[in-house]
Structure formats: C-alpha cells, structure tokens
C-alpha cells in the first residue's frame, strides 16, 4: 500500500520503454561506429569484477566514502563509473549484455541499490533483444524479485529508490 504505481503509470512506462528499445535498434549501427574516448577500456565479456568496476566505479565497488574532489573539474569515470552511453552499450553483443546483466544482478543480490546501478540495469534491459533466451528470462525475473525484496525492506520510503525499483519491476513484469 502506497508503494505501488498506478496501472496508468505502468502502461505509460511500458509504452515509453518500447519506444526507447525501437530507437536504440535503429541507431545501434551508428553508435557502434562512433569513436570511443581513449579512457574507455571496456572489459572482456568474462571479466565480472572488471565490469562491476566499469559500471559502478571504483568508489562504489571498493565501498570507499565519496570525497569531494574540488580541484578536479572533470568527471573521473574510473572513480564514478562509466554511465551506459550509447557508444558503449551499442558495442556490446547479446552475450555480453546478458553477462553484464548477470554480473550486476549478482552485485545487487548482496549490495544496496544505487542510481548508477539503476541506470545500467535499465540500459541493459533496453539492449536485450527478443525473443528472450531462457537464461535472460530467468535473470530478469531474479532481478524483479530482488527489487521487490529491497522495496519491501524499505521502511523510510527513500522515495527516489522506491521509484527506481518500481520502474524495473514494472518493465520486467510487463
């Protein structure tokens, strides 16, 4: 009660997500051919720890306190993690998308939800092509269950987190 989104909101999210997936498919070839910055070193498909660091950043991965870095005006993606830029996710084939999804879900099984994790999960779900392979199907169901579990434990209604969890549960289940 009070945590669940309305049916109308869910339907809107499903429609928007579908449009996002279509646009992504249309532009995948274009973004695949775009030049990547020299600091973007994508891990190999099997490198679970490498992908966790790449997506979430060394600060979250190593559970370090976030220290404000005033003298550094640019964003250090090694520390804060690379966001799911189209030029990055378009380079990932379906096997890699599924593997990284699995790595991040493994992470989420033991750790807290963060905005960085939410963005990557959303982006990887958008990259999954249908028909879903059985392992992908099983993975995203596991993801929705974990989101539901974390949501149920949330007592103080950290609003931003509930919204993000609701979004993932909605996209997976619908």
């Amino acid at each position: 009660e009070g945590y669940s989104p309305t049916l109308k909101w869910q339907q809107q999210q499903v429609a928007s997500f579908s449009a996002v997936r279509q646009s992504l498919n249309k532009r995948r070839n274009h973004w695949q051919s775009q030049h990547l910055d020299s600091n973007v070193a994508m891990p190999t498909s099997e490198d679970e720890e490498g992908w966790k660091k790449f997506c979430l950043g060394e600060r979250i991965y190593s559970e370090l306190d976030v220290v404000s870095d005033n003298e550094n005006l640019g964003i250090d993606y090694i520390k804060v993690g690379f966001p799911p830029f189209l030029s990055i996710v378009s380079r990932m084939n379906q096997a890699t998308v599924t593997s990284v999804l699995e790595y991040l879900i493994n992470w989420f099984e033991k750790k807290n939800f963060t905005p960085e994790l939410g963005r990557w999960l959303y982006a990887l779900l958008a990259c999954l092509e249908k028909p879903l392979l059985p392992e992908a199907h099983s993975l995203i169901r596991q993801l929705a269950r974990r989101c539901s579990e974390v949501r149920a434990q949330e007592e103080n209604k950290n609003e931003e987190q509930i919204l993000a969890l609701n979004l993932i549960i909605c996209l997976v289940s619908r």
């Binding site: 909101w9 999210q13 928007s16 646009s23 030029s87 963005r119 959303y122 979004l167």
Partner: peptide, 27 residues
C-alpha cells in the same frame, strides 16, 4: 511520430531512465 534525433545523443538511455523515474512523482 516526431523525429527524436535531437534527443538521441550519446546520453539518450540515461535521460530516458531519469525521465521515467521522475515521472512517477506526477503519476
């Protein structure tokens, strides 16, 4: 459907996610 080329820059998926999460507040 309108042409969404303008909003489909390298950050399009990030913006789509942030927009979806923000939209709940208005639901």
């Amino acid at each position: 459907q309108s042409d969404d080329s303008d909003v489909w820059d390298d950050t399009a998926l990030i913006k789509a996610y942030d927009k979806a999460v923000a939209s709940f507040k208005n639901a």
